[in-house]
Simulated scan of single mutants.
Amino acid sequence: MTERDKVFAGSIPKSYDTLMVPLIFETYAADMAELVAASSPDSVLETAAGSGVVTRALAPKLPAGARYVVTDLSQPMLDYAATRQGSDSRIEWRRADALALPFEDASFEVVCCQFGAMFFPNRVVGYAEARRMLRPGGRFVFSVWDRIEENAFADHVTHAVATLFPHDPPGFLARTPHGYHDIALIRDDLRRAGFADIEIETREKVSCAPSARDAATAYCLGTPLRNEIEERDAALLQLAVDRATEAIASHHGEGAVTGKIQAHVIVAAR
């Protein structure tokens, strides 16, 4: 992962939330909200919250007196998430690094993180921090994407954009969002962080978009892939969207499109 992989700023937060969230994140957010809320926790810490898709799904399911702390490393993403959430006195918004959390030990019943661990520079440290936050018996609930070949639109977009830069193809999607998919490695990292009770389930879902162009635009403009394209040649950004659109349409047809998405959902108990 490069430092640019973590830059969710400028127009990306809004594009991410309006384009990427309904495309691939909402369906998994509903699952995570169910998992986290199942134990009726009185305190939840969310890390790498992004534009707040899990927050919006989870907050209505938590007890009235619950404490819910929502964090992200990116202040622009956190600010955007807060504007989408509306008033909720239970929620505390806090910029925080998941690898150096500014809270006391054993402060929460549940720590959750949807599709954030792939961005951790040191995942063992991040998992150890999550464990430090948990009370005895508490749960760390998180998800990561499976390999890019199991995620149709991301794979098509990556190959299509690469044709514009054959000598230096942008690799963000394969490198970072889909670069941490080895279940054995995930288990090993969690054990090294101190977790012993680990459950991992691979969940396949369907990604839907009104058109191939909508899906292509989401990936090219709503993720740090945009940064990679603009670094190489900003004038080719629209052409990148066009190429990605053509690739998705060639595999999934004209009009509304659907494609496979797949992720690992992990629950580790303290």
Results as ranks from 00 to 15, higher is better:
residue 1 M to V: 07
residue 2 T to V: 11
residue 6 K to R: 15
residue 8 F to M: 14
residue 8 F to K: 05
residue 10 G to S: 04
residue 11 S to P: 04
residue 12 I to P: 01
residue 13 P to K: 00
residue 13 P to S: 02
residue 13 P to D: 11
residue 13 P to F: 00
residue 16 Y to A: 09
residue 21 V to E: 14
residue 25 F to T: 10
residue 28 Y to L: 15
residue 29 A to H: 13
residue 31 D to M: 13
residue 35 L to G: 11
residue 37 A to W: 09
residue 37 A to I: 09
residue 38 A to K: 14
residue 47 T to C: 12
residue 50 G to P: 03
residue 51 S to N: 15
residue 57 A to C: 14
residue 57 A to V: 05
residue 58 L to Q: 04
residue 59 A to M: 07
residue 65 G to L: 05
residue 67 R to W: 00
residue 67 R to N: 14
residue 72 D to F: 03
residue 72 D to Y: 11
residue 73 L to M: 15
residue 75 Q to F: 05
residue 75 Q to M: 14
residue 76 P to G: 14
residue 77 M to G: 07
residue 77 M to H: 11
residue 78 L to P: 07
residue 81 A to W: 10
residue 83 T to V: 08
residue 83 T to S: 14
residue 84 R to G: 03
residue 89 S to W: 00
residue 92 E to Q: 09
residue 93 W to N: 09
residue 95 R to Q: 15
residue 96 A to S: 12
residue 99 L to K: 07
residue 99 L to F: 06
residue 101 L to G: 04
residue 106 A to K: 12
residue 113 C to H: 06
residue 114 Q to F: 10
residue 115 F to V: 09
residue 115 F to S: 06
residue 116 G to K: 08
residue 116 G to I: 05
residue 117 A to N: 04
residue 120 F to Q: 08
residue 123 R to I: 12
residue 124 V to G: 08
residue 124 V to L: 02
residue 126 G to V: 04
residue 127 Y to N: 12
residue 130 A to T: 09
residue 130 A to V: 03
residue 130 A to Y: 08
residue 133 M to G: 01
residue 134 L to R: 08
residue 135 R to T: 12
residue 137 G to R: 02
residue 140 F to I: 07
residue 140 F to K: 08
residue 140 F to L: 14
residue 141 V to H: 11
residue 143 S to V: 11
residue 144 V to Q: 10
residue 147 R to H: 08
residue 148 I to K: 12
residue 150 E to N: 14
residue 151 N to I: 03
residue 151 N to E: 03
residue 154 A to H: 10
residue 154 A to V: 06
residue 157 V to T: 08
residue 157 V to F: 06
residue 158 T to Q: 11
residue 160 A to G: 05
residue 161 V to Y: 08
residue 164 L to M: 13
residue 169 P to M: 04
residue 171 G to W: 05
residue 171 G to E: 10
residue 173 L to A: 06
residue 173 L to Q: 05
residue 173 L to W: 02
residue 179 G to A: 04
residue 189 D to V: 00
residue 190 L to E: 03
residue 192 R to E: 13
residue 193 A to E: 02
residue 197 D to R: 07
residue 200 I to H: 04
residue 201 E to T: 12
residue 203 R to P: 00
residue 203 R to D: 00
residue 206 V to Q: 08
residue 206 V to R: 11
residue 207 S to D: 05
residue 208 C to S: 15
residue 208 C to R: 15
residue 210 P to V: 08
residue 212 A to P: 01
residue 213 R to F: 01
residue 213 R to V: 01
residue 213 R to H: 10
residue 216 A to C: 02
residue 221 L to S: 10
residue 224 P to D: 01
residue 227 N to D: 14
residue 227 N to T: 11
residue 229 I to M: 12
residue 229 I to G: 08
residue 229 I to T: 03
residue 230 E to Q: 14
residue 231 E to R: 15
residue 236 L to D: 02
residue 236 L to G: 08
residue 237 L to S: 00
residue 238 Q to H: 13
residue 238 Q to W: 11
residue 240 A to L: 04
residue 241 V to H: 10
residue 242 D to P: 01
residue 244 A to L: 07
residue 247 A to L: 02
residue 248 I to F: 02
residue 251 H to R: 15
residue 252 H to V: 06
residue 252 H to W: 10
residue 254 E to C: 10
residue 254 E to Y: 05
residue 255 G to V: 12
residue 256 A to I: 13
residue 257 V to D: 05
residue 259 G to A: 08
residue 261 I to G: 03
residue 263 A to I: 01
residue 264 H to S: 13
residue 264 H to E: 10
residue 265 V to P: 00
residue 267 V to S: 06
residue 267 V to W: 01
residue 269 A to S: 14
residue 270 R to D: 11
